[in-house]
Structure formats: C-alpha cells, structure tokens
Computed example of a mutant assay.
Amino acid sequence: MAGSSLPRRALGRTLREHRIRAGKGQLVAGLHIEISPQSVGRMEDGRKIKISTSQIRDLLDFYGITPANKERDEILALWGEVKQQDQAAKMQGTTKGWWRSYSDQFAAHFDHYLDLETAADQLTTHQLSLVPGLLQTSGYRRSLTIAADPDLSAVDVERRLELAARRQVALDKDRFRMKALLSEAVLRHQPGGPAVMADQLRHLIAASERGNVTIRVVPFSAPAPLGLVARSFALLEFPPLASRLVEPPVVYVDGYEGALYLEQSDVINRHRRAIAHLEQVALSEDATGDLVCRIAKEHAE
C-alpha cells in the first residue's frame, strides 16, 4: 500500500464533509490556514499538497471539530496514516505513481483512473465492445492504439504498449480480484484482424484460469439485456484502511472525449444492481470458456 491514494482520498473527503457542514467555503478555509482555495480543493480531491500537521489542526478548529470531539482524533489518525505512507513511498522511491513517466501517452483524466486501479483490490467491469485493458494482448492493444491515432510514431506506440503491459501486473497482486462481464460482441469484433482476435481470445481463456479472474459472457440471446442500457463501466472497490475507514467504491465510465468518476451511493447501488442482473443472464464460466474457444477457432480459420 506504499504510495496508495486511499488514505489521502479518505482524508480529503472527510475534510470536505466537515467544511460543508460548517458552512465554510474553500476560499475562507484556505485563507484561515494560509493556503490557496485551489490547494484546499486539491486536498479535498485526495491530491497531494504541502500542508503541515499544525495547519490540519487549525482547519479542524475552524470547522468546529474541537479536541472534545472524537472525530478529531480519527481525522488526525488518518492524517498520520497519510504521512506514514508518504514516508514509506519516499523510502521506496515511489513518491509518484509509476505511470506518471508515461503521462505524455494518455489523456489527463486517465491519471486519476490509474491511481484508483493501483489502489483497488477488486475490479468489476462490464464491456460492450472491447476487451478490458488488464486482459488485452499486445497485438490487440496495438491495433486499438493505431486505430485511435494513425499518425502516432512507432516509439510512442511502443511506449503505450509498455504502459499497458505494466498495468497488467495488477493481476499478480495479493488479494486483487477481477470480474469481467463481456458482451458477446467483444468476442466477435476483430481489431487487428482475425488472427489478432484469435490470439486475444486464447489469452482470455488463459486469464480465466487464474484464481483471481472471472470472465463471463453475456450472449446476444440474453433476455432483457440491461447491459445495453448500463453500457460499459468499471466498478473499483478498495481494501479497508489501517484506521478501519472504508473508502467508497468508484464507478468509472470512459468515453471518447473524457471520463466520469462516480461516487454517489445511489449511483453505486444502481451499478451494483446492473452487475447482479448481468450475472443472472451471463453464461457460466464453463459455458463462457466453450463459447470463447469456439469463436477463437472461427477467427483462426
């Protein structure tokens, strides 16, 4: 968990809730502890800023969270956890996410997703047209990369493939679990041609043999396909913090021009219901394996 964003995100969310409850704006909060309102916003978004323990204490006083309030001790304990992880990350040389060295190769919004994906211990994804990034082969990823940007240099293509490969190390993490619910269309599209797709499907079969990866296909014949309404999304869930706080899940929805990060409890619950419905109509893991094998052979012919 060294370098994890979870404690910082939990601290930021807690401070935002108390600021709003106290009826304070980011401008006056920043003025009170001599930082900019933009810094207050970044802190509340779970991003790293320069701030001291004394400033955190002053902010809590400003929000009316006095030493007599037990929440104060909980918040300061969370702040201690943030500092501890910062120190551990510094000792390990991981003060920044490893992916930031590839920042010229992905959209600005994807930096936040990679931060979340690195911290998550469970990922449930529903995909209507594409194989999830963590399960893509290099040939499949290459075809998508070139299709999205035909003028990309060979060097940049290779760097993007390297980024994709490094992301897939997540599958080897302790306690990480991935569940992929894929439309049958994902298996039948042919990015890069039939040979590339046949290899990709064989890779899915191999990935499904991992103890921490579940892949199930929602066939075209599935009744009442709620997935067509819910569309593609990923639900990221996180392990409990050392302070026993639980960081809420995040639904990530990627689009051609940007992305959405959704944390509202009603939104999370709707997506959980969509997942439950998809699991009801999806093929079993064994039937999924049979279908993937059959379509892989069709692509290879």
Rank of each mutant, 00 (worst) to 15 (best):
I268G: 08
D73M: 03
R42K: 13
G133A: 03
R231N: 13
T214V: 14
A185T: 11
Q87K: 01
R294L: 11
L114T: 02
S243N: 09
L59F: 14
A29R: 05
A10W: 05
V253Q: 02
L11K: 05
L59E: 01
G255Y: 11
L283I: 06
V213D: 04
S243L: 05
V157R: 04
E17I: 09
A89P: 10
L291N: 07
R270S: 15
H18W: 15
V40D: 01
S232L: 04
L171E: 03
S39T: 09
R167Y: 07
R216Q: 13
Q264R: 15
A164G: 04
D61M: 01
H277D: 01
S243H: 06
V28Q: 13
R270P: 00
G227F: 08
R231H: 11
T94Q: 08
P249V: 04
T124M: 03
R270Y: 12
D151L: 15
T288L: 03
D111P: 05
R294Q: 15
R175E: 07
L201V: 10
E17R: 14
V196H: 06
P37E: 00
P194I: 14
R175C: 00
Q264W: 00
A230L: 14
L31C: 09
I75F: 11
E44I: 05
K173R: 15
L241W: 08
S52V: 10
L114Y: 08
A164L: 12
L228K: 11
G258T: 04
L6R: 04
H189L: 08
A276R: 09
H109P: 00
Y63N: 03
M91C: 07
L204D: 01
R202S: 08
